[in-house]
Amino acid sequence: MTYASFGKRARSAAPFSFFKAFAVALSLFLLNSCGGPPTPSLGDEAALSPPEAAHLAALKADLAASKNFYAELSLRDGELRLCHSGTFLRKYKLSGASVQHRRLLFFSSGKLDEWNNRIWRNGELSPPRVIERVRIIPGDESTRPTPGKPGILPPTMEEIISVPSSFNLEFPEGLTVRVELRGEIPGKKLELKKKNLLWNDFLCGLGLRKGPAVRLNLEMEGKEGAAFFRSLPENSPLLILP
C-alpha cells in the first residue's frame, strides 16, 4: 500500500461518514441553540383544575394588593403585560418563546419543575438600565428641560436610556428570562461586548459558572422589547401564567 492509496481510501472510509454525521448533528444542535425561539402553538384556554384556578386567583390577588407594579407573562397569548392593582397598563407582544432547562451530559441538573403558575420576585435587569441624565447648568438654555428658545429640542427618554439587542431578567430563585430583540430598536442602542453563549452555557452546565435552572427565551420586535426594557419598574415581580 502506498501513502497515496491510503489517503484515497481514508477519505472514502468510515471516518468521513462519522464526520459527516457529526457535522449534521452539530449543525442541528447549533440551529436549535442559536436560532430564534420558535413560536409556541398553544390552545387559548388553560384547562386548570379547581385548585390550580384558585391558586392562580390567589397569586393575582396577592400582586394586585401589593400596591406595586408587576408583570404578567402569558405564553398562550404571546404577550407580556405590565400591571398594577389587577389592571394591565400596557401589553408587549412576543414573537416567539422557548424554555430551556440546565443539563449535564444530557441529564437535567438543578431542574426546576414549578416555573409557571407562580410568582418570581426580586428580578434584576442585566445589563442594568442606565439613565444618562442631563445636568442643568443655571442660565444655560440648552440644558433646561423646557428651553425658552425655539430650535432646542431636549432629549427624550428613548434618547437617554439605551437598550441592548438582548437582555436578561434574572431571578435569584433560579429563573432567567432572556429577551432577544429583532429588527430596529428605536432610540439609543447599547452596544455590548459579545459573549460566547454556548461556552458560557457549557460552563453553567458543568457548575463552573452560576446559571439558572430554567431559562425562558422570549423574542420580541425591537420596538416592543425596547419599550419593555425602558419602562419596567425596578424589582417588579413576574407572574408566569399557566
Binding site: R103, N116, G205, P242
Partner: peptide
C-alpha cells in the same frame, strides 16, 4: 451539557405548574 431547548407545548406548561 449546558441548556436544552424546547418549544413550549401544552404538556410542558402543565408539567411546569
Amino acid at each position: 451539557t449546558g441548556y436544552d431547548s424546547r418549544i413550549i407545548t401544552e404538556e410542558l406548561l402543565v408539567s411546569g405548574r
